[in-house]
Structure formats: C-alpha cells, structure tokens
C-alpha cells in the first residue's frame, strides 16, 4: 500500500467515522444520565429523514441539521415518556423505538425515495487544509465534520465543568444522591435523553445532507447499533468514543480498499470484519479496563413517589 492510498484511507476514515461519532456521543450523553436508549438506529434514521425533508423544502442545510436534531429528540422523548414517566423497561422500549423509527421513516419517506438534494458541500479550511497529510485527512470536508471535531471536548467540558453536567452524570451514578442534593434526577434524565437524541439526529443528518445528498430507506444500515456498541467500547468516555468511531469507520474504509487492491478473501468474510473486530476490541478493552465500568444506575428506573 503506497503512501497516497494510506493518506486517502485516513481521510475516508474520518468521513466514515463522523456519523458514528455523532450517534455515539449522543448515546453516551443519554447513558451517562442513567438511561439506556437502544433506539439509536430509529432516532438516527428519523434524523436523516427530517434533515432531508427540511433541506428539500427550504434549501437551508443548517436549518435542516437543527430539524434533524429536534426531530430525533422528539422521537427520543417517547422513550422518556415510556421509561421516565411510566417506568417501562429501558431495553425493550429502546428496541421498540428502533422498530418504530425505522418504520416511520420508511412510511413518511416513501414518496421521496431517490429524491436528491444539495445539503452541505465540502470546503477547505484556509491555511489548515494546506498542511501536508493532516490537511487532506482532516480539513477538506463538510462543515458537520468540522463541528464533530469539537464535540468530544465540548461534551467533556459539559460533564466536568458545568453544574448541569455534573448533576446529569450524578443521575447516572446515584439518583438518590442527586435527590438528596435537592435536584431532580428525573429532570436530568429528560435532559440526557433530549440532548443525546439531538446529537444522534445530527448523525443522521450527516448521512442525508453530506454523505449521500438524498433520501432513501435504510440509510443508516445498522450504524445506530454500532454506536450503541461503541459507547461500551469507549467506557462512557467522550474522547475514547471519538477514537472508537474512527476505528470502526477506518475498518469499513480499509475493507473496501483491500478489495480494490485485489484481495482474494471472500467478500462475506470482509463484511464480517467490522463486527468481529468490534467484539475483539470490546474483549481486549474489557480485559484491561476493569473498574472503569458503566454508570452505576444505568438502566434502572427511578421509582415515582419514592
């Protein structure tokens, strides 16, 4: 493999990793507040759909991105209603949300399948894009890619430096303690679900506005589920999540280039590669990462009237 191909692979890795990065970061926020939301796939595809529709009707990609985030958040709030208000099981509710979201996007989107739209266009960041290698890998993409670079640090800052972020994380660790401190852990969880779903939706928007510039069914093709896996891979840490998203994106990009270079490995086995490596990576990291486990109250509902 020559140097040029390698640099191009890295650039492709960033592109393939970006939707995963948004979705993973979203799910990470939700899980840190103590709510497990397996509906990422459903929210993400609804985000992609809302983004497409708004872009299609208004022609404004920023408005479309906002709509994707808010639209996905509305879908996510269903999860909040079921789990936070009605004490439903979080695992099953998330699953139902995925089935629902995928169905709804198919249904509402049916008249628009194959329609094209402009979305975001790549632009080179002046100066930075001229840096050899780094410029090509990082700074010749779409605006949503550039924003995604800041996301992990913004989330870290939010978790560590703001009282709201601290309270949100505390609701995931010990809702009782939050209650004792005079705050409402349920409100924090609403926030976690809303903010998380917002970013998941933006990840979906990336797919319809930047990656394909069109609408079709099954646009996410399982990326939401990968995001759920990556949160665990990342030990619920934002920067590690970024690493995980690029790792996974990199494997997918690498697989295609390996084929293009003329490998004789059967294509079925190539298709297994990302999933098998995800399990291996999780095994490897969980063997080393004992003690950095999930938020203590993840998946537990907060009983009302307690």
């Amino acid at each position: 493999m020559t140097w040029d191909i390698f640099v191009a692979l890295l650039a492709a890795t960033v592109l393939a990793g970006t939707p995963l990065l948004y979705a993973t970061m979203g799910e990470l926020i939700t899980e840190r507040s103590g709510v497990l939301n397996l509906g990422v796939e459903g929210m993400m595809i609804m985000g992609a759909f809302f983004a497409f529709i708004v872009q299609f009707k208004t022609g404004n990609p920023w408005l479309a991105t906002l709509a994707a985030g808010l639209g996905a958040a509305c879908i996510g709030l269903l999860h909040g209603v079921v789990c936070l208000v009605f004490q439903g099981n979080q695992t099953v509710s998330g699953l139902a949300l995925t089935i629902f979201g995928v169905g709804l996007s198919d249904y509402l989107g049916a008249p628009f399948i194959g329609e094209k739209t402009v979305g975001f266009q790549p632009f080179d960041i002046p100066l930075l894009s001229d840096i050899p290698v780094l410029g090509e890998v990082l700074f010749q993409h779409d605006p949503l890619v550039y924003l995604s670079y800041l996301l992990p640090w913004a989330v870290m800052w939010f978790f560590r430096r703001t009282s709201l972020g601290l309270a949100l994380c505390a609701s995931g660790e010990s809702p009782d303690a939050v209650q004792a401190a005079g705050l409402d852990p349920v409100k924090m969880r609403w926030l976690g679900i809303f903010a998380g779903a917002f970013f998941v939706g933006v990840g979906g928007a990336y797919l319809s506005l930047c990656a394909t510039h069109m609408w079709t069914q099954n646009l996410t093709a399982g990326k939401g589920w990968i995001a759920v896996a990556l949160v665990i891979f990342a030990f619920w840490r934002p920067r590690r999540a970024m690493f995980g998203a690029y790792l996974f994106g990199g494997i997918m990009a690498f697989q295609l280039r390996l084929q293009a270079l003329g490998t004789t490995i059967p294509s079925s086995l190539m298709m297994m590669l990302p999933y098998a490596l995800t399990i291996l990576a999780l095994l490897f990291s969980s063997a080393r990462g004992k003690g950095r486990s999930a938020p203590a109250a993840l998946g537990d509902n907060i009983a009302p009237g307690a």
């Binding site: 459903g42 509710s93 629902f100 979201g101 995928v102 169905g103 709804l104």
Partner: peptide, 9 residues
C-alpha cells in the same frame, strides 16, 4: 413496523 413498534411502546 410502525404498528409493531408503537403497540409495544
């Protein structure tokens, strides 16, 4: 799918 998902919710 919509029916299935929403009934479950």
């Amino acid at each position: 799918g919509i029916l299935e998902g929403f009934i479950l919710l």
